[in-house]
Design a protein around this nucleic acid. Structure first.
Lengths: 205, 205, 205, 205
DNA sequence: CATGAATGAGCTTTCATTCAT
DNA sequence: CATGAATGAAAGCTCATTCAT
């Protein structure tokens, strides 16, 4: 099956380039990244990049638009089939985020979206549509569940599920900026956050 | 008074260049910013930039290291001379942040620190030392006050005053990324946050 | 044989660039030379220079460090296999110098070494080690031979073979400075020099 | 006499600038020299240079065209009123050259003429007319005197008095290029040269 | 006269993109 | 498909020259 083998090697090539691109873009930012470095890191010639991507910008856009779906799926599944106190659900979601985003190169993707997004409207829109709004919908459902179970008061978190996310965002940004000289204890931060969200410890007051 | 006049015009020139640099760096990021554009926007020749700043990087570092002190002073004063319910104090602090940061070019400075800081350790350290750690100290004092007055439970916010800031950070990032097509109601978000922080409405339960 | 062809074209390119660089550096000196001119003269784009040389300085150093060995070889061979009166040998050496240095672009290399050497210690040392000290050694051997054959008196030329070279150096400098309006009859100068060196006409007194 | 004082201070200023210019041009060459450095070294503002010299090139031309006459006068006087063996006269002339040129900043002027002359025809012509041809005339007279006294044979040195100068030129160039790591014993070189010029020790054979 | 801030043309160097092999 | 030499349009930075003070 030479066709199959060729297609696979194609996919591999492309994946290697994307991995190298992530390294370089994450370290340098879009403008300062050099395709020479991407090619060298991917082990291909510079011209080869253009067989897979139309331009530097295209490579960048493909890179930051291809990595979010699976995590979101995990979140969605977790919430849909949830049972037990919501505070435990929140802890599980945070753990997934820590493990699957903060603990992987995905955090670099998110940082790139934050840093470069304003100059790449297509990327910002894609992320809002495919990641942010879906994630917020899941979290809003979560808030509704907690309210229905009497675990939280008011509709603040239903209307602004962003408040679930904010400390995770902060952890991600802190990590990139200050962790070399002022590391942040992320699990403790998230635990504190859960304490704030569920003042009565997650049980009905 | 020619000496005096010359010194003043010097300061003006420098301020004009910094203002132009903020425009250009905020829009393009550090690497993609062109000093030609900065000079044109400031109404000076390219060479003039180098009479005031040693290099592009120097200009950038001076720009992001010169704008935070006054706001912090406001916050500190407010907390020190506070009276009344802490929730109102928090509302006032948030309002200051919205007015003095989100509502001004300062938000662009902060965004630049977030985006470019990882490549400029000097800037990250400066901001951590001069802005972030001081701001967190103020917020921690605020949390202690609220706990002392019985307005919040636990020490989560004392240990992690970051949780006060997180939604403001989120608002700032959202604004830069998504506001053109998905604006965020920041006052409502902050009000919701206050509801979460002070579930009993800011009075002792 | 595409590999072979590519390597050859590589060498050709490099040689073309070096030839163009010699033209431009010789005419303008190092500092005033423009790489634009080098590129144009070599028939390549400006960026191509940097595929072969790391910088303007590198190009210059490679240029002045790559052209002396063959001539020295000729001199050495001539002296080693000499027979007949030394004055004829000197005449032959001078003729080689006139033909191979004064009559070619090599004289421009030497002039560049003289003019720019003080600012390029690496070049000065290279030339002293590879060219000057070897050349002087050959000339000292020549003086020893003449003394052994009773053609000259004293050891002045053995200790200072520089005295053989001095008029050639003068001819080279005169040529660059004054020849447009006051040409120097170099063969006559060199003949006069031989008369001085061998007052008895090259035969034992 | 304010007029006189002003005129003197004018001359001083000009002399300071020329001295500073010599420092900078000698170290950097014409093209690489920066008028900023000249002004700083002279202790004047950059604009002041233009009150005394029309341009960088004008400053350079004035600098290298103002320093030769007195030395030539000494040579001329010495030869005109000579008595005793010519070899002693030659030794005296060489000593003057060593003292007044090699031992002073004048050697830097000469080196500048050699290095930059090809790009400044006005300078080359001036030096040929005012210095070189006059100096050679003196040396030719010297050679005639030696021949008349039977101290040398042939007319080689009468026709090419350059041969007197050549070792001095070599010493000057050697000094600029190689002396840091391979110093040349100039007095010994010149003594050797006299031995070659006067093989019988300066007495009639 | 003297100053030095301002100018802007011009320099070296970089790097996304192309294309002959 | 893959290569990597070649391109050339910028970009950052310099510095001789000018001129308002």
């Amino acid at each position: 099956m030479p066709r199959r083998a060729a297609a696979e090697s194609q996919r591999d090539r492309r994946a290697e380039i994307l991995a190298a691109a992530l390294d370089v873009f994450a370290e340098q930012g879009f403008a300062a990244a050099r395709l020479d470095d991407v090619a060298a890191k991917a082990g291909v010639a510079k011209g080869t990049l253009y067989l897979h991507f139309a331009s530097k910008q295209d490579l960048f856009e493909k890179l930051v638009s291809g990595e979010a779906a699976p995590v979101l799926g995990q979140l969605e599944g977790l919430v849909r089939h949830a049972h037990g106190p919501t505070i435990e659900l929140v802890a599980a979601l945070q753990a997934i985020f820590v493990r699957e985003v903060l603990g992987t190169r995905r955090k670099d993707i998110v940082r790139l979206v934050i840093s470069e997004g304003p100059r790449f409207p297509a990327i910002a829109q894609f992320w809002h549509r495919e990641v942010v709004s879906k994630g917020l919908a899941v979290l809003s459902a979560l808030a509704r569940r907690a309210a229905a179970r009497g675990e939280i008061e008011g509709d603040a978190l239903v209307r602004f599920p962003h408040l679930f996310m904010a400390p995770l965002l902060m952890a991600m940004i802190w990590d990139g900026l200050f962790s070399p000289f002022a590391p942040l204890d992320v699990p403790a931060l998230l635990q504190a956050h859960r304490q704030v969200l569920f003042p009565s410890g997650g049980t009905k007051p």
